[in-house]
Amino acid sequence: MPPRSEGPEQVPISGDDDVVRVRQLVRAYAQQTKLSLVDQTKLVTAASELARNTLIYGGGGFARVEEVNDGRRAGVRASFHDEGPGIPDLTLALADGWSSGSGLGLGLSGARRLVDQFDLDTEVGRGTVVTVTKWKR
């Protein structure tokens, strides 16, 4: 069976309240896909961290949420897009406790631990796209 996706939805991230909106959207998708409560919470928390990153470090952007299916199981995928400065040192950015802003430095590395798949695409001066996926157990 080819990967099937259902109606991706996109929301802008340009302010504080958008982070809350992203959380709610991801929660709605996670519920619809029937992820377990713990998995829902993990995914929504990861989305919250990443949306905040997009806002603070990326200077805003948008989030895209969709239901995915790899033929064996269903899942929810969320991606966070910005056209900010990009991340110069990935290893450093993904290390626990590292932060270029005012956070605890758990944003990226923490979010990565909360999901099943984590992809980071960044280019200095061009922007960053972080994509996370949580599969149904």
């Binding site: 409560l37 713990v38 829902q40 919470t41 993990k42 928390t45 961290e49 626990d96 605890l104 758990l106 590395s109 923490g110 631990r113 909360l114």
Partner: peptide
């Protein structure tokens, strides 16, 4: 604190 929240916080490293 709800169980799912607690589990997530631990995983997050907080």
């Amino acid at each position: 604190m709800r169980p799912a929240v607690a589990i997530t916080l631990v995983e997050l490293g907080l």
